[in-house]
Amino acid sequence: MELIADVLMVAGSFGAAFYCHILSLRLKRFTTLETGMGGAIAVLSAQVDDMTRALDKAQGAANGSASSLEALTLRGEAVAKRLELLVASLHDLPDPDRAPAASPRPDPVEHSMVEADRRLRFVRRRGQRETLEAAE
Rank of each mutant, 00 (worst) to 15 (best):
T73K: 05
S24T: 13
L85R: 12
Q47L: 03
A134D: 01
C20M: 15
T131R: 07
A134I: 06
P94W: 02
E110G: 10
R105W: 11
A16V: 05
G12K: 12
R29C: 03
L44H: 14
K28V: 08
V87Y: 10
E110Q: 11
G76E: 06
F18K: 15
A66N: 03
R53K: 12
E110Y: 08
M37H: 12
L93T: 05
V114N: 07
K57E: 15
Q59G: 02
V79K: 13
R75D: 11
I22S: 05
E84T: 07
D95V: 05
A71M: 01
A134W: 04
R129M: 07
P106T: 10
I41G: 00
L83D: 03
Y19D: 14
R119N: 08
R124D: 10
G64V: 07
T31H: 09
E70N: 03
P104T: 11
I22F: 13
G39K: 00
M113N: 07
A102P: 07
E34V: 15
G15R: 08
I4T: 14
D6F: 15
E115T: 09
G64M: 04
A11E: 02
P108Q: 02
R126F: 03
A46D: 06
N63K: 05
V48Q: 06
L55E: 09
L69D: 03
D107A: 00
R126D: 12
L27Q: 08
H91M: 12
L44Q: 07
A99P: 02
A62R: 04
L33V: 11
A135G: 00
F122H: 13
H21S: 13
A116R: 11
F18L: 14
N63Y: 04
G127P: 01
A101T: 02
E77G: 08
A135W: 02
Q47G: 02
T131G: 09
Q128K: 10
R121T: 14
V79N: 09
H21G: 11
P108N: 00
M113C: 06
R119V: 08
E34W: 14
V43A: 13
R129K: 07
R124P: 04
T131I: 10
A116T: 05
V7D: 09
H111E: 12
T32C: 11
L90M: 06
M1C: 10
I41S: 01
A78N: 01
Y19W: 13
R53C: 11
L23P: 00
A101Q: 05
A66H: 04
